[in-house]
């Protein structure tokens, strides 16, 4: 097991290097020069100004030398400084990552809370009204775009039930748990609802498949109670592929937070990312991508390791 983990950790290095290089090149390949943007429209064509800016922000030299310089900083956990604000990316992300992390965790929690029971009930009551209603509900959540739902809910709250308007400003959970949840609950429900559709569909199909296994038939023939068969024998096996799906949803979740954080004014990483892309803030874009890539490769490893916890038959060597 330890060797397996070590091997996976080593394999992450080329993956992250590849991601970092691709991102580094792509952000610079986008038409337009960040120096023009920093210079603004007053002095856009003044070469002296541009050179001064390029020098000030370390953008001189070819792309390879810039990449090597940046990589050298990264291995020292220095993600660089924002070209726009001058603040360090590391300090910005250290404030914003926990916010996005909380939102993501709550979204996954709500996703599972909605998807797993509905998926299981739909499977064990296949083709009944409960199945139809449950599936329709989950598909409905999948079909409704999160940003649309968010704006609709906020607009309706402002007009018809002002108690439902989220707080104006974000507070940390540790400072004010109720104030924090007042802001985070609805966006995480919207995000979780969006994710729950596919998880529900997957849970239902794997549950149906599991319920048709011989050992389940044996359990029925032994006269075991339905609750015992479902919870102890079927569900545990059926959830293994579901864990994979949830793991694969993490990058999608990061994408979802980008919009929802802006709508609900949550000071997370997604909002920071949007602003960085808008202003071609290379260090921020690169920093966030490398963080997201790291989270994704580690979560994939975590998901793989979780298999062995859920199903003791799985062993890594």
């Amino acid at each position: 097991m330890q060797r397996y983990i070590l091997r996976r950790l080593l394999l992450m290095i080329p993956t992250l290097l590849g991601v970092s290089f691709v991102v580094f090149v792509i952000v610079r390949a986008v038409p337009g020069d960040v120096v023009d943007l920093i210079a603004g429209d007053f002095g856009a064509a003044d070469p002296a100004t541009k050179d001064a800016i390029r020098k000030e922000f370390g953008l001189e030299g070819n792309i390879i030398s810039q990449y090597i310089r940046w990589l050298g900083d990264i291995v020292q956990f220095d993600l660089g400084k924002s070209l726009i604000s001058g603040r360090t990316v590391t300090s910005e992300l250290s404030n914003r990552l926990p916010v996005t992390f909380q939102l993501g965790l709550m979204a996954i929690f709500f996703s599972l809370l909605i998807a797993v029971p509905i998926g299981i009930i739909s499977a064990i009551r296949q083709d009944t009204w409960a199945d139809f209603v449950g599936r329709s509900f989950a598909i409905g959540l999948l079909a409704a775009p999160g940003f649309w739902l968010a704006i609709l809910l906020i607009s309706m709250a402002g007009r018809y039930f002002t108690w439902g308007v989220p707080p104006t400003t974000y507070v940390e959970f540790t400072d004010n748990p109720i104030g924090n949840l007042k802001l985070m609950l609805v966006p995480s429900l919207i995000l979780g609802g969006g994710l729950s559709g596919s998880v529900m569909r997957f849970t239902r199909s794997t549950m149906l498949e599991t319920l048709r296994q011989d050992y389940i038939r044996t359990a029925w023939s032994k006269g075991l109670q339905e609750r015992v068969i479902i919870v102890r024998h079927a569900m545990r096996n059926a959830l293994i592929p579901v864990v994979t799906v949830v793991g694969l949803q993490l990058p999608i979740l990061v994408g979802g937070t980008v919009i929802i954080e802006s709508v609900y004014s949550i000071p997370g990483m997604g909002r920071y990312y949007i602003a960085a892309i808008d202003s071609k803030d290379y260090p921020v874009i690169q920093g966030i991508n490398i963080i997201v890539a790291t989270v994704v490769v580690f979560s994939n490893l975590g998901v793989d390791l979780l298999y062995s916890v859920i199903d003791p038959r799985i062993r890594y060597s």
Binding site: I151, I154, G158, S265, R271
Partner: peptide, 19 residues
């Protein structure tokens, strides 16, 4: 001055009397 990027949210905050 609360930093609220989304217009719908800003309007809702005003309608709720928060701003």
């Amino acid at each position: 001055s609360a930093i609220i990027p989304e217009y719908a949210n800003r309007l809702a905050q005003f309608q709720a009397g928060n701003t």
